[in-house]
Each structure stands twice: as structure tokens, then as C-alpha cells.
Amino acid sequence: MTLLRVRNLRVTFDTETGPVEAVRGVSFDLGRERLGIVGESGSGKTMTGRSMLRLIRPPGRIEADEMRFDGIDILAASETQMRALRGPRMAMVMQDPKYSLNPVMRVGAQLMEGLRQRDRVGRVEAHAKAVAALNAVQIRDPERVMEAYPHELSGGMGQRVMIAMMLIPNPDLLIADEPTSALDVTVQAEVLSILDALVRDRGMGLIFISHDLRLVARFCDRVLVMYKGRVVEEVAARDLLKARHPYTQGLLNCLPRIGGNRGPLPGLDRDAEWAR
């Protein structure tokens, strides 16, 4: 079943020096699966993710031949309709929890805010749901975390709180933009397994945006490789290491490996053809 259908997506920024196209004709379908979008900085992967929620600020513009989420035309939806979609049905986890949580509000209050305001849930029930959400992301002492302010949490803890917050309304689609890049390797693994379990148990669709090919290969079902605003290759994640496109191969080869030889790392010779 197709949850999200995107055809010929374009994101353009009008600047003093003329229009800059950040995304140039991206098309894909997403079912209830884990889709990875990889690419280097400036490849347009973040802009693609934000476009799904129409979170592009002027001077940026979104255009597409078609962009449907569960049958709803995202480009034609009113701002009220979009607000009803963002959160309850489509959620986004950003790279750094420090900037996504309100620094002067207790974690518990932030978790319950949506439930109380949007769903008119009573105080006791909202509290119980928030604790359950924190349990779901494997926070061991949810009551203490509920009472904490964001700055009192470690990076990994903050990111789990963010994921818990996004999951409370039980969305159909989760867009995770570099959710683990700010975390240490050992914590990274835990956060990924939490995300993985949630996708499997709840049957969510997941768009996982990352610059780390190896991470995406291990974690996703299908991968889009982006270069300069275009998708240059789409592969099944398990075949990523056997990818054919020279850009994907180049990205894989230029990484140092433990126990590898110490000669110069192979560079990535960019071909102007790839960007066409």
C-alpha cells in the first residue's frame, strides 16, 4: 500500500544571486517500510524530508507534479489541514534535540501538551500516556525524566524524548533527519534499535535521512542516493555495498576502515554527468 507518493518534487530558493534549486525532480513511493535517503551536505536530502511536511520557509518554494500522503494532496492542503497532518499523522525528528525541545519547560509538560490541547485528554490519562511513550523508547525511570528540564538530559536521552514525543499521537509516517548524528556510537545503536522496533510493531512508514551510508545500509529496507538535488540511484539496502552508480561506490570507498592500509584514501571524482 502506498502511504506517500511523490512525483517530480522541486524546491527552489530565490536569492539575491538568482534562484537556487535545492531539489530537482525527486520521485518516490513509500509504503509501510524504512526508506533511507543518503547524500552529502547540499544534496537536498533534508529539503526533501522537510517538503513532505511543507516545512520550507520563504524564500524557498515547493513544486511537484504530485505529492500525496494517504490520498491527501499536500500541495493543495490548507494551512489548517497541514497542522492537522503534522504531528498526528506525520512527524519529524531532527538532528539535535537541544534545539527541538523547549528549554524552559519540563519534559513531562512538553510531552503532555499535545495530548491535553489537541486531544482534550484529562491530566491523569495524559500523564499515563506520556510515561508509556517514554517506556516505549526504553527510558528506565520515566517519572524522573518527566520532571527534568531538557538541559538536564544527555544527548541520547534527549533524542529518545524527542522520538517519544513524536510517537505519542501514533503517526503513520516518521521523518527522521540525521536522528543519531549528534550521538555517540554506543548510544546511536540503541536509538536505532528503538526506531526499528517501533516501525516494525506499529507499521509506520519511516524516512531516514543520513549522510552515513553504512548506517543506512544496516538499518533501512530501501535507499535513495541523492546528489545535487537529484536521485542518482535507488537500491535495496542489502545491495547497497554492491551499488553500481560510481557516486555511491565512491562514497563507500572513501571511508577509512579499521585495519585497512594507510595509503591515501581514494577520492571521489565528481562527474558533471551525475548532476544532470
Binding site: E40, H211, L251, C254, G267, L268
Partner: peptide, 15 residues
């Protein structure tokens, strides 16, 4: 830095 740029900078440092 991006992976490919990381490789270039590491090569530069080694050289």
C-alpha cells in the same frame, strides 16, 4: 565533513 571530503582532508594531513 562529508565522507568524501573527510578522505581528502585526511589525505592532506597525512601528506
Amino acid at each position: 565533513l562529508d565522507a568524501s571530503v573527510q578522505a581528502e582532508v585526511l589525505n592532506l594531513l597525512a601528506r
